[in-house]
Design a protein around this nucleic acid. Sequence first.
DNA 1: CGTGTAAGGAATTCTGACACG
DNA 2: CGTGTAAGGAATTCTGACACG
Lengths: 110, 110
Amino acid sequence: MGYQETSYKDKKVISIGVVSELTGLSERQIRYYEERGLIFPERSDRGNRKYSFSDVESLMEIANKIEDGVQTFEIRQEIKRGNKKEDQRSIRKKMLKGQLNAQFGIQQNE
Amino acid sequence: MGYQETSYKDKKVISIGVVSELTGLSERQIRYYEERGLIFPERSDRGNRKYSFSDVESLMEIANKIEDGVQTFEIRQEIKRGNKKEDQRSIRKKMLKGQLNAQFGIQQNE
DNA sequence: CGTGTAAGGAATTCTGACACG
DNA sequence: CGTGTAAGGAATTCTGACACG
């Protein structure tokens, strides 16, 4: 029992409407990120998108990056490289951080 | 990281259509088991049912019991008692099993 | 580039009911 | 009792496109 804990996280069962609620993103944004190759939902028999909890988490990370001004193609690169801890994004983000905090005190995940 | 592994299992995010696919049960059956107090999906803003992976598992167990001839009110009892390993149902089931198999393996209302 | 929106259609879900048994 | 189904409506999702910037 419990050997499948992880499978729940990766099972594609959530509709786009619920993903929208969970992430706070619009359906338009979610579909767009798929179009740009950032997430890969499955499809039901009739073509409806189905997402996993992993996808939901990825989307939240993607949303953060977009806010930081990272473009979708860059994010796609990171994904292909295996999303290293210290990649371009993180570096650029850190450089931005000082400015942002100084100007409006925006909070970033470090 | 990982402290939320369990929450995935109980988060209500799956639509009835997907639950139907996952369990092999008809939507009619799934709604009926709710009506009988065996499962408790949440509702989206507009009233659509949302289930968790736990619900999906419960449904599969319920389906097995129904096949064994257990009635919904009995299953509800078990749920209220905390679903002990060796409850009345299991015991009766074992007693019935021999007869049923011997005769035809038919499912009965006791 | 990233995202909003109106557009029209197809599929989903909901409830209450009749049916069989 | 448990489950199928037809019924009508309301909400969901899909795609391709125009718009702004």
